[in-house]
Amino acid sequence: MNEGKMMSFTTDEIQKNVLGYVNSIESLGALDGPGLRTVFFLQGCPVKCIYCHNPEMQDKNGGRPMSVIEIVQIAQRNRPYFGKRGGVTFSGGEPLMQPDFVLQCILECKKLGIHTVVDTSGVIFDKCIFDSADLILLDIKHTDSEVYRKIVGCAMDNSMRVLDYLSNNNIDFIVRHVVVGDLNDDVQNIKALKKLANKAIKIELLPYHAMAMPKYEHLGWEYPYHLKVPSEQKMKELQKIIDS
């Protein structure tokens, strides 16, 4: 029984009782960081990217309140599945919207030797978290500030500041780039991305997909039908640039 495995907490009780607002938990996460991971999708995001695939997580209000202790207990329960490389990932939404909570979760996980990943849009700069997490997944939406603003709705400065900080402080990070047909699938953009992210462990190109459509319908939002799924051929071509 799992009740028997409750951990005893002796210090920082108050800190650990910081509440976070969690939209959902994916206990079989294999795409957000290395190995098998438990992914916590946190509620709330300060921006509204045009191709957002978790639109239900944008609203700052909502989500299920959970304590750091609860998060760590779930991580512990799932730990046997993590293998040599897995662990937990904080995604969202934008996890850095809840910095105290995320930081406490990371610190507690670290104490237990659980690998931690933060998946961020780059719109918020948080030195403490960048310094503490084992790996950062940084979403770079575009390399051109004009188009960036079109996609995200704000200036690119913060994103670049995050990238600079990660690059200059020996922090492990992976750059992720959602490729949308006719929007950012040009060779020039990908080449620029490669140059910009030269300190990243890896650059992952993620093809845009239309699977979030039901979510938009559910929210009563208009779906961005004009966005195009890139062809497989195109993705291969762009991947070649990254690999070269």
Partner: peptide, 20 residues
């Protein structure tokens, strides 16, 4: 959903069975 390539998928499936 088990990983981005065949090697990852295999490793992750092994972790899953080991874990269970």
């Amino acid at each position: 959903t088990l990983g981005k390539n065949n090697v990852d998928r295999q490793t992750n499936l092994v972790s899953l069975i080991d874990g269970y």
